[in-house]
Design a protein around this nucleic acid. Structure first.
Lengths: 223, 223
DNA sequence: GTGATCTAACTTGTATGGTAGTATAGCAGT
DNA sequence: ACTGCTATACTACCATACAAGTTAGATCAC
């Protein structure tokens, strides 16, 4: 049993986490102007930790810091989302292939458990959490958990879109069916089938994007 | 002709760039203790920008900030390098396949030009710059330049190893031969050959790692 | 009315002082 | 010689003050 290395996170880290969640969940809508002083007042802290949180967010491409002008929640750039999708597909395909080769009975059971959780999810956030848990679990099975950290970063851009689209465009049932195919392929140790299933799943967002850009134009960059 | 949007970068950004280069080039060796005050004194700036540079570096996994203890150049973790390699291979394979489909005569000429540059490189840094230019060019040809930004981040971990190994382990000639195969496959619009060539190239580091860990044990994490 | 200009209210960037936590060297008591 | 406490010299972290730049609006000249 390890001694608790868990200390209270720094204020800057906490602010970063809060803002990141808010941006990904589209509570802070694209284009919104943030200001160090305003956020600092809201959280009753000084400007410095807030500033550091902004720097972190800027490095994740979630905000844009314009010197002496302001900091803004980045608008969704269609090309960026498409490139994020491309990279994510490349990584997740490779991960799924490895997982298909390494999955044992216990691992398969864990995957099926997440599928069940998705089926009974009653809210958008709940479903997306189970969704993410499944994808991460696949990475763990493949022994590439740290590869998931990369996907997690990339994914943020896509998730912003997903939070807009879950209710409207893609019914959960459809996504669960796709997930189910991935799990079955891994359970059957069929790498090729796993790859095909992942690619089909990753194609989903391609169909959503045009519709979303039409419906929420103010959240997208005109570029 | 665009008006110069280039303004002097902030001090924090400059310090970040300098330190990042120094770490990747192994001038700042793994395990070295950095301190806000020390670096600030060295560059004749205040501690705050230095602190912000540290935060950026920490997010890139190049340093580790231990609260109230110090900030240290991260030691090279074998597993992290292997995972970085895995992710990079997945992305670069996908990029190369697309490039094979899209390359026109001008693009192929540009690739061959970088090959020539590599052949006449007289220093480690010079060769690595040409190497990087070629890989980025492939991404540009594929129309996935922003995907390269992801690789660039991942690659930092691998580059730290490469700066140790260039002279000792992998002769440039061997790498150039591998690069040449990649270019030929793309020029022939043969996606499968391009994939195979990239995978072979990415396997190179696997052979170097054990030897390097043996030779420079103090730069690696015992974990 | 129209246009240029100045001012005031923002913004981010930098410097500095102080705080809390950690590690270490040295001294005290065995 | 060895153990345990204490003072001290670090560290990152946070708050505050100041500087430099941008922008929007009021004001003044025409």
């Amino acid at each position: 049993m390890k001694v608790i290395p868990q200390r209270a996170a720094s204020i800057g880290a906490q602010v970063h986490q809060q803002l990141r969640d808010a941006i990904v969940r589209a509570e802070l809508t694209p284009g919104t102007a943030l200001s160090e002083a305003e956020i600092a007042a809201r959280y009753l802290v000084s400007r410095q930790p807030v500033r550091e949180a902004f720097i972190r967010l800027a490095q994740e491409d979630l905000v844009e810091i314009r010197p002496q002008r302001g900091t803004f929640v980045k608008r969704i750039v269609m090309d960026d989302v498409l490139d994020a999708r491309f990279v994510r597909e490349a990584i997740e395909v490779a991960v799924a292939r490895e997982a298909a080769g390494k999955a044992d009975a216990a691992a398969i059971a864990r995957l099926q458990a997440t599928l069940a959780t998705q089926a009974v999810a009653t809210s958008n956030a709940e479903f997306l959490a189970a969704d993410e848990a499944m994808h991460r679990e696949i990475a763990v099975i493949a022994g590439r958990e740290s590869a998931w950290r990369v996907v997690d970063q990339i994914k943020a851009q896509m998730d912003r879109v997903r939070y807009l689209s879950y209710i409207d465009v893609s019914p959960a049932q459809r996504l669960i069916a796709q997930h189910s195919e991935i799990v079955e392929a891994i359970a059957a140790h069929d790498a090729n089938a796993a790859e095909a299933a992942v690619r089909a799943h990753m194609a989903e967002i391609l169909q959503q994007l045009p519709e979303l850009a039409r419906r929420y134009p103010e959240m997208f960059e005109g570029s």
